[in-house]
């Protein structure tokens, strides 16, 4: 297979933490430049762990991460620096992800220093980026705790983008935002994507956000991808019962109570002791004897969709 130069490819990776919890259990995914991929899951699904593995913050115990054709297995220090110029991440809580004793100016200059870029030459570009993000120069000499939460979020985004990465991993970018401003942030991300032709991975539990701004989506449950495909197709006609339940549980404005909700019973099992067979079988409304013993594999289906279920839902649902 020819190595593609404008993708991140994850091949069958697993990440296990000290203590033996396998947070990511054999996942393959691909993110291309110019595309937005959504990663959805509940707590314990391993979505943040997977995202961190893409930026080299988690070391996979098996499998490969290939960025722009370069295999990251056995990362050296030089590789890592290279990787971080290509792939950047913004973290869930913007304020606590900014070093508290650095001014905004120092925070924005630091990525340039780390990557040996000429700060003076690059500074106009930094200011341009700030303006694009709606940050004013008056904020440069403030400390993170002196700006609003929304501004801190913009600073974190600016920091990730000043070194011109090709990929941006965004962990819960709208967490804690009011509805009246979350749209602003999402519009901003899509502007930036077009301007810098970024590949964006959005990790979120918010299905409305994922449904609206991503091209493709991967649904995770207990360390596995259970379904993947073009977002609209998956949202319109989920093939995996978990996807359907997740979509159904998502609160939408429905004062007439027209929608019949599928409420899953039981709790999400602990990732340290995933159920045998299909990991979803303990909560699946359609469980069959086969599901208890045989783990379904993620198989290719029509239109670039994949799902891991022995008894998939009808496609014309």
């Amino acid at each position: 297979m020819m190595a593609e130069t404008n993708t991140i490819e994850v091949e069958n990776i697993s990440v296990t933490f000290a203590g033996g919890v396998q947070a990511v259990a054999g996942i393959s995914l691909k993110l291309s430049v110019g595309e937005t991929l959504g990663l959805v899951g509940e707590s314990g699904s391993g979505k943040t762990t997977l995202a961190k593995a893409l930026v080299g913050l988690n070391r996979p115990e098996s499998g490969r991460v290939v960025v722009e054709g370069r295999d990251l297995t056995g990362l050296t220090r030089a590789d890592r620096l290279w990787l971080r110029r290509r792939v950047q991440m913004i973290f869930q809580d913007p304020l606590s992800s900014l070093s508290p004793r650095f001014t905004i100016r120092k925070l924005l200059a630091e990525p340039l220093a780390i990557h040996g870029l000429n700060a003076k030459e690059r500074w106009p570009a930094v200011l341009d980026l700030m303006a694009r993000l709606g940050l004013s120069e008056a904020q440069l000499d403030k400390f993170p705790h002196q700006v609003s939460g929304g501004q801190a979020r913009r600073v974190a985004i600016a920091r990730a983008l000043v070194i011109d990465p090709s990929f941006l991993i965004a962990d819960e970018p709208t967490a804690g935002l009011d509805v009246s401003v979350q749209g602003e942030l999402l519009n901003l991300l899509s502007d930036l994507q077009q301007r810098f032709s970024l590949g964006i991975l959005i990790v979120s539990h918010n299905l409305n956000v994922i449904g609206r701004v991503t091209d493709r989506v991967a649904i995770m449950y207990l360390g596995k991808v259970v379904e993947e495909g073009p977002t609209r197709a998956v949202f319109r006609a989920p093939r995996h019962p978990y996807t359907r339940a997740l979509l159904s549980a998502n609160p939408v404005i429905d004062p007439e109570h027209k929608r019949k909700k599928i409420v899953l019973s039981g709790e999400i099992p602990s990732p340290s002791k995933p159920p045998a067979g299909c990991r979803f079988h303990t909560r699946c409304p359609n469980v069959q004897p086969r599901c208890l013993v045989e783990e379904p594999q993620l198989t290719e289906a029509e239109n670039g969709r994949r799902y891991a279920c022995h008894f998939p839902l009808e496609s014309a649902a």
Binding site: V179, S180, Q182, G183, E184, R212, T231, R232, F235
Partner: peptide
């Protein structure tokens, strides 16, 4: 009205700007 318009409706076309206040 504005708040309701800000709610993201997954059924609208992607690429459309999201409404904000």
């Amino acid at each position: 009205q504005a708040l309701l318009a800000c709610e993201i409706d997954p059924d609208t076309e992607p690429g459309e700007r999201l409404v904000t206040i």
